[in-house]
């Protein structure tokens, strides 16, 4: 009876092939999830709602402030020593964006100047949107 059950691994190297397949899959999965770590490194996307719209992506905190030109003039984006981001100045009348201060999660928005600074966590956004 036992002899009638076909062996799962007929060839002596088959199990190696199967193990390799599984290992590659698991490594890819683990690598992907490791890449979704929530640690913030100062990466952000800057959307500038000019015509045409522009988009800048900074993959990490920048050592020096960056100037971007919005609809009403220049805005300065600055990274702190803790890698948080702020809009330190903007050519807008109300300065709401400047008063929003430092962030590592919420978007900073300057409506008059048409500038949105979105903190990014590694390659993906941590949240889909922020209610404020």
């Amino acid at each position: 009876m036992k002899d009638n059950i076909p062996p799962i691994f007929a060839g002596k190297h088959d199990w190696l092939i199967l193990l390799a397949l599984l290992a590659v899959s698991l490594l890819a999965w683990a690598g992907h999830h490791h890449g979704r770590s929530d640690s913030f490194n100062g990466a952000c996307r800057v959307r500038i709602l000019t015509e045409p719209p522009q988009e800048l992506v900074f993959n990490q905190a920048q050592p020096r402030p960056v100037e971007v030109k919005g609809r009403t003039g220049l805005a300065v984006i600055e990274w702190g020593s803790d890698k948080r981001i702020r809009i330190s100045s903007s050519a807008c009348p109300c300065k709401t964006c400047v008063n929003m201060g430092w962030t590592d999660s919420s978007s900073l928005i300057c409506v008059p100047n048409g500038i949105i600074v979105e903190p990014l966590v590694n390659t993906g956004q941590k949240v889909d949107a922020v209610t404020r």
Binding site: T103, D104, S105, S106, K126, V127, D128, V130, T131, R132
Partner: peptide, 18 residues
């Protein structure tokens, strides 16, 4: 899930998540 942060106006962080 859709993931929405509630902004904490005190420090611009996240007050809560939905």
């Amino acid at each position: 899930n859709w993931r929405i942060a509630v902004r904490d106006p005190r420090d611009n962080g996240t007050l809560a998540l939905v």
